[in-house]
Design a protein around this nucleic acid. Structure first.
Lengths: 343, 343
DNA sequence: AATGTCTTCCAAAGCGCTTCGGATGATCGC
DNA sequence: GCGATCATCCGAAGCGCTTTGGAAGACATT
């Protein structure tokens, strides 16, 4: 069933039917009603490709995941983010297309994405510190919003990010206040921007108290459970074990907890742990009495906000870049306590 | 830059340029090369919408997530599944579009999806036992593959699934062999097909040994960490606590472990745990010496296979439904041991 | 020299929609 | 009663591509 057939069926022109369906004024209320009913009855639904061709709009947003960081997609954070984003898309009638951009020629991929006319805008995931995608996308004129920032780039673009630096600075300061002096940082991969910012926050807090960051206590890897376990186990077995851990992901924190237990220690008493908590639905940290003391910021909320921001830009392309910095909450749970007295 | 312009630039017709670019034989090698070079130099890339309109193919696969089970998307399993699928799509040049189908009128959504011409095929996620989407999709003629099955449906369709029943039966039998008699099952939501099948496997193993399943030891909820914790904590505090837990997700298992520790017990000695392990990259259970004894089946692999299956069906629409049953491995880790002797 | 066969290219229709520029009556003002 | 105005509707062009059905020329065949 296409427009032509529907029009024929109604004894009207395609023009009129199209206008009736799209709410244009040059059509009587009576015919509009008749058209609408026929459309429903005959199960008519406009072909998106044809519509897109004619209007130049795709009614779809692209989420581009570079294949090199494909872990972005399998990272549980990703699921919650796009779940948030799709709430916004659903309301606005947009679709979401994920494209894996092969690594070989990333720029080319965006160009193609644009030329293909698949999407009206793009959300950039997992920016690196000097992410090449950002200047490139600015060149294309395709609206985009970055989830995160690229610290080494000094050009305007739209982003939404949480205040990684201040969150980790506060968390570190909190541990220092509890008397901890040897605080380990189990971070994400160093070239990821968020990881960089978190380390900065951590180091600032330390140096402000006159403590020199110990490189032996800092690790940056893919934030898996085994990473947390291995790193924590090693550090705890060393001569000068840390009394507290700060980590970037609840999953890593779970690994740390395992290492702590295995060393015969108790979390929150012998060893403190603070984690960042993206408030993932499947990894809830507890609402009232969280297991882990955490810096919390909902990534799902971030997804929703990013999508809304992007849709605004698509609606009004001339708009200036917009930025949104989310402040994380520091939530006290059961995983932190005063530093144990050295015996 | 579009075909017309490119053709004009080359002094050729659109026909010839199109043919040269798409590898048709009626064009000399020389012109083909010339065209290819110009296309690259001028950064030409065909408009997907126009191409789709003309060819009737969208070069995209739809992954439809009913909003009622939106947790499907935030479920970490989802990320790994689509990561696997996109490996296949990438090779074949397909895009992947996620559509959230609102709940109100789910059938309508598929119809629209088809009418819109957005996608060439669909992957159905998270089937329920009598999932209405399946008979409906069979009516549309749009190729689709289900990840999982719908036990109450007796119609042919393509699916890929793991052998949930046999996996959980084997796991339960293994626990029985170790002397456990009170074995709890912390399952997924009961209306989900996989959860149903797992329970069947669990109950079969019990009844074959003459043990009646105790409803007090069976729970089915969203498979989060807090669920595992709460359920396990309650059961362990009861008069007749279970000596072993069988659960559907590594995340839930982590919650169980927390409850065990908190009860002052040791996992693998006082209480055994077997979990299903989807082999998620971010929640690795360990390769050599897994933390948890587990039934393992890679969901990423399942995603790849599902995508390949779907692409085959799109290429040859007349093909009969195809099915693929993956057998899970039972992997022995550190979380199981002989049932403790009652004192 | 006439016919046939390739090879290489092209014009134009068509995919399903939107939208510009009218056309057709009905209604109105004077 | 006549031009002007308005409310409705329609024809046809155009979005960028593929593909059908030739056409033109080169060459071989008879």
């Amino acid at each position: 069933m296409n427009l032509k057939q529907l029009a024929a069926h109604l004894g009207l022109s395609q023009t009129t039917v199209s206008r009736a369906l799209n709410g244009y004024p040059e059509v009587s209320e009576q015919t509009r009603k008749r058209v609408a009913e026929a459309a429903r009855a005959l199960n008519y639904s406009p072909n998106a490709r044809a519509k897109g061709l004619a209007t130049g709009r795709a009614m779809a947003i692209g989420h581009v995941i570079p294949i090199s960081t494909q872990h972005e997609m399998v990272n549980p954070v990703f699921g919650d983010f796009i779940a948030g984003a799709s709430e916004a898309y659903l309301k606005a009638g947009y679709d979401m297309t994920l494209s894996l951009s092969g690594d070989e020629d990333e720029a080319d991929n965006y160009r193609r994405l644009k030329a293909k006319g698949h999407v009206d805008g793009i959300i950039v995931h997992g920016p690196k510190m000097a992410d090449g995608r950002i200047p490139f996308l600015r060149g294309l004129d395709l609206p985009f919003v970055v989830h995160g920032r690229a610290s080494e780039l000094d050009i305007p673009y739209s982003w939404i990010d949480m205040n990684n630096t201040s969150a980790f600075k506060r968390a570190t300061a909190f541990l220092l206040d509890l008397g901890h002096r040897r605080i380990a940082l189990l971070n994400g991969l160093e070239f990821m921007d968020f990881a960089y910012r978190r380390r900065i926050g951590y180091e600032e807090a330390l140096t402000e108290r006159g403590i020199a960051p110990d490189p032996g206590l800092i690790r940056g890897e893919e934030m898996t459970e085994p990473f947390g376990y291995r790193a924590a186990a090693q550090m705890l077995a060393s001569d000068q074990p840390p009394t507290a851990f700060l980590t970037s992901s609840l999953i890593t924190a779970i690994g740390i907890r395992r290492a702590i237990h295995e060393a015969g220690l108790e979390m929150g008493r012998d060893v403190s742990v603070i984690t960042h908590d993206d408030d993932l639905s499947y990894l809830a940290n507890g609402r009232d009495m969280p297991i882990f003391t955490a810096t919390r910021s909902s990534v799902r909320e971030a997804g929703r906000l990013a999508a809304e921001m992007l849709l605004r830009h698509i609606a009004a392309p001339a708009r200036d870049p917009e930025t949104h910095l989310l402040e994380a909450q520091l939530i006290i749970g059961g995983s932190t306590g005063p530093a144990p007295k050295p015996d």
